[in-house]
Simulated assay, not measured.
Amino acid sequence: MIDTIIFDFGNVFIDIDYNATQTALKSLGVKEWNSELDALNKEYEMGKIDELQFIESIQKYTDGADLISIRSAWNALLLDFPLYRLEFLQMISSKYRLFLLSNTDSTHIDKFEHKVGQSFARDFYSCFEKVYFSFEIGKRKPDENTYKYVINSHNLTPKKTLFVDDRLENIEGAKKNGLLTWHLNPEVDDVTNLLEIIKTFHD
């Protein structure tokens, strides 16, 4: 019987369009997303560098774009967070132990909170027993230690815990820790289908 759910954030609750950021960065002169930028992104997501260091590092790949334009381009991927998803989360929060575990950075979280407003963000966060952002805990999925950190911090039972994520590599990492998983495809699935998914584990 599932008693705990660990959710990803992007493309589970808030809609994400990675191409929007790629397009916006290209318009500033970033020719391609290369391995150096990818490594930089991971460092930022793990809190190893701060926002200014991250944006100034991207600036070197632009045609002299200013920092505010780069920050705006970086946040272009953040789309809507439909109210019905928050209402669904509030509805199930009394039935399950809920956690949020997201690979993200402070720039995206600041933008999210500004975009939806303080009361919406507060209502969202309050649905969870604990919110884990990679930049705050210095760990990111799919590193197995990231899942262990959450499991051990709350004495969770993996076989009673469902992990929900839109990225296959994160699902695989969760499976290695014995967690039940739902690989949510944002093209066809919605987090509000969760209770139907849970039924399949109980059949």
Rank of each mutant, 00 (worst) to 15 (best):
K31F: 11
K31T: 14
W33M: 14
W33G: 12
E36N: 13
L37D: 13
D38V: 01
L40R: 15
N41H: 11
N41Q: 14
K42E: 08
G47Y: 00
K48E: 13
D50R: 04
E51Q: 11
Q53W: 06
I55E: 02
I55Y: 10
E56T: 04
E56R: 09
S57W: 09
S57F: 08
Q59M: 14
Q59Y: 04
K60D: 15
K60C: 15
G64Y: 09
I68M: 07
S69V: 05
S69K: 07
I70D: 13
I70R: 05
N75P: 03
L77Q: 07
L77H: 04
L78C: 09
L79M: 12
L79T: 13
P82M: 01
P82S: 02
L86N: 03
L86P: 06
E87C: 04
F88E: 04
F88G: 05
L89V: 13
Q90P: 06
I92M: 13
S93T: 11
K95M: 09
R97D: 14
L100K: 00
S106K: 14
H108F: 03
I109W: 00
D110W: 10
K111I: 11
K111R: 14
E113Q: 13
H114I: 08
V116Q: 03
Q118A: 11
A121M: 08
D123Q: 06
D123I: 13
C127Q: 02
C127G: 07
F128S: 01
V131R: 00
Y132L: 00
F133Y: 13
E136C: 00
I137T: 05
I137H: 12
K139T: 01
P142I: 00
P142T: 01
E144S: 15
T146G: 05
Y147N: 10
K148A: 10
K148V: 09
V150H: 00
S153D: 11
S153A: 14
L156M: 07
L156E: 02
L156R: 00
K159L: 14
K159M: 15
K160L: 03
K160R: 08
K160I: 06
T161H: 07
V164M: 01
